[in-house]
């Protein structure tokens, strides 16, 4: 009977509507979090840039300095620091970061430091060699988190457990555009330096010595790279979630529209049927 169909449709509308309320709420929450995460990313950027500038300025002058962080060893095992979120419902955010790492890994022998529940779960299930896991930090990363991650990576590197460290994170380009990115942290590599920059550096004094400065600067560099990546990733995660939830809300609205139409049709049909039954009945009485 038409009445039963109407009941079903009504129930579905209700259920879609409550889902919509949830996605809408999540969208609002992640936009608020996104705003905060973006602000943090912007505040950190000057520090991040300056440290990179300083280290790139020093590197050309430390050719004679012996440091394990500058040695290009033969690569037997590659370390990856992979930054993902703790939670899902954020579109392709987690999958894209993981995919980026896995594609790069190829057939190499690898070891992973997983950040975020989603990444950790993936690498554990697939039987990767997990050297460290850091969960429930990706939403609000602290500098001390970056410190402990950096320390672990540098320890592994120093003990020659890994011969290379790569960092995989999601770069925050804009609210709707996030790009998974891979950068090589260790060993340090010189970038192309403009000539005038090199010349100016010739007179640079390193107090007490270039080694000392470099020994101080390298851990700082690694830490601040990781911190920057954590912050960018957390902004990207919120951005991705916001976009995903926005489209989920839109879809729910569309579905509710469709279902309403169906419901009204079914109602109309049942009314028409009832009338024709009554008319038919009255006709038969004559």
């Amino acid at each position: 009977m038409a009445g039963a169909g109407m009941q079903d449709i009504k129930r579905r509308i209700k259920s879609v509507d409550s889902t919509k309320q949830i996605t809408k709420a999540m969208e609002l929450v992640s936009s608020a979090k996104l705003r905060r995460a973006r602000q943090r990313a912007e505040e950190n950027r000057p520090y991040f840039e300056k440290i990179e500038e300083t280290i790139q300025g020093i590197l050309p002058h430390t050719k004679e300095v012996q440091s394990p962080y500058l040695d290009q060893r033969e690569i037997k095992k590659t370390g990856y620091i992979v930054i993902t979120g703790d939670r899902g419902l954020c579109g392709g955010y987690n999958t894209n970061a993981i995919k980026k790492a896995v594609t790069h890994m190829n057939d190499r022998e690898v070891s992973v430091i997983g950040i975020g529940q989603k990444g950790v779960n993936f690498f554990r299930k697939k039987g990767y060699d997990l050297d460290g896991e850091f969960v429930s930090i990706s939403e609000k990363p602290m500098f001390s988190d970056a410190k402990s991650i950096g320390k672990l990576a540098m320890e592994l590197y120093e003990n020659e457990m890994i011969d290379e460290v790569n960092l995989v994170y999601t770069e925050f380009v804009s609210t709707i555009n996030h790009k998974p990115r891979l950068i090589k942290l260790l060993p340090l590599q010189e970038k192309e330096v403009p000539e005038e920059f090199q010349e100016r550096d010739e007179v640079m004094t390193y107090e007490p010595s270039p080694e000392e400065v470099l020994n101080y600067l390298i851990p700082k560099y690694v830490e601040s790279m990781i911190y920057g990546a954590l912050i960018e990733a957390s902004a990207s995660e919120q951005g991705a979630r916001r976009v995903a939830m926005e489209s989920a809300t839109d879809n729910a609205e569309e579905m509710i529209g469709d279902l309403n139409l169906k419901y009204n049709r079914a109602r109309q049909a049942s009314i028409t049927q009832e009338i024709s039954e009554i008319v038919g009945g009255a006709e038969a009485q004559k």
Partner: peptide
């Protein structure tokens, strides 16, 4: 250390 105008280029922890 004290840094004044026109200090020699320096990097130090």
């Amino acid at each position: 250390i004290a840094i004044l105008h026109d200090h020699t280029p320096l990097i130090t922890p």
